[in-house]
Simulated scan of single mutants.
Amino acid sequence: MPDPSAEPGQTLVQVEAAGVNFGDIKQIAGEHTDGPYAPKVPCPVFPAWRSSAGLRPADASSAMFRRAVTTKTVVSDRHLVALPPGVGAGEALAVLVQGLTAWHLLRSVARIRPGESVVVHAAAGGTGSLAVQLAREFGAGRIIATASSVQKRALALELGADAAIDGDTADYRERVLDADHGRPADIVLDAIGGPVLDAALDTLGPLGRLVTYGASSRQAAAAVAPSRLAVESITVAGFWVIPLIARNGTAGTELAQLLDLTARGHLRPLAGAEYDLARARDAHEDLLGRRTKGKRVLRP
């Protein structure tokens, strides 16, 4: 493809790294077929909401932004954000999508209050690992992580979880309650969906909140009867960061806070596996097979 050229209000950027997200797989599979964020071009599809980090030729200052899986891209200036010294490309990519997601899950949607218990599903993943750390930063009373392997559960504990359990649906409620000293959970953050989401509803106490922000199981959750929610005044909410970025841009105070926490060592975005751009298929297959931890990166 020819090199793009910048118009007024845009900047040409040399891409240093591009993040791999589960949404890319859904786009490639044709599962994001409706709405303003669906692919509008025929194959080959370059996932349209890929986050990237790179250098601006004009002044070689670091920047990160959305939308690029090529060696060069043009980006609107309102999506350029200077990176603090010491924050690498992989960390920046994790903060931009997964970090903003975790921040809004806890602050904007679940509205966490000091002392509340938080259950984080897939806690060794990009968003989950940051949600564990931010829950601690925001004053959670007890953080319970779920993960699929002993190694991943150990990582969640290292990142600040108080307990780490297997996320399998069998006896899920009993494991969560036991990890929370017999108390029901206040908040559950779920990106798995399907039967896991259904099981998680049974762990919530009065005024509990479950936030769904993905469905990596690719299974539909059971229909939830309103009466099931009403008994304990439970809230089920959804969240997707992409429309938020599209509407507000990336240069917000939340992102600045996340970058500052990272630069000061208070937040540890997990840099995962790196792939040459020609191995994008391998990156997607590893993500589907849950063979990776942290933020996966493509290097053009």
Rank of each mutant, 00 (worst) to 15 (best):
A89S: 06
A163H: 06
S117Y: 04
S52T: 07
E91T: 06
V236G: 15
R113L: 15
R50D: 06
L255Y: 05
A92D: 00
G141N: 07
S76W: 01
A145T: 11
L80K: 00
I187M: 10
A48F: 03
V118G: 07
E31R: 14
A161G: 11
R153Y: 08
D162W: 06
G294Y: 09
L259R: 02
D171M: 10
A179P: 04
G88M: 02
G265Y: 01
A256P: 05
L96M: 03
P84V: 03
G125P: 14
H121C: 13
L261Q: 08
D202Q: 15
E285D: 14
G90M: 00
A82C: 02
A220K: 08
G214N: 06
L258I: 04
A221H: 15
A122N: 12
R107W: 09
G54N: 01
Q98W: 02
A199H: 09
Q98C: 04
Y275T: 07
A6L: 03
P4N: 01
G214A: 12
A6N: 11
A147M: 12
A222D: 13
G125A: 14
R175A: 08
E274K: 12
P206C: 06
L204D: 03
G167A: 09
D260F: 02
Q10V: 08
A199Y: 07
A256H: 14
G99R: 01
V150P: 11
S62E: 15
P114L: 11
R153G: 03
G160K: 03
P36D: 07
F46N: 04
L177I: 13
G160E: 05
A225C: 03
A273E: 13
R175D: 09
I242T: 14
A38L: 05
D180L: 13
R299W: 01
A140S: 09
P300H: 03
G99W: 02
D260A: 09
A38H: 04
A60D: 09
A230H: 13
V132M: 09
V87W: 02
W240C: 06
Q133P: 15
G19V: 00
H104T: 07
D276Y: 01
A135T: 09
G30A: 02
V231S: 14
W103V: 07
G88H: 08
T146D: 08
L258N: 01
T11K: 07
D282N: 13
D286P: 08
R136E: 10
V87M: 04
S5C: 09
A29N: 14
A145Y: 03
T292A: 08
E254C: 06
V95Q: 00
A191M: 05
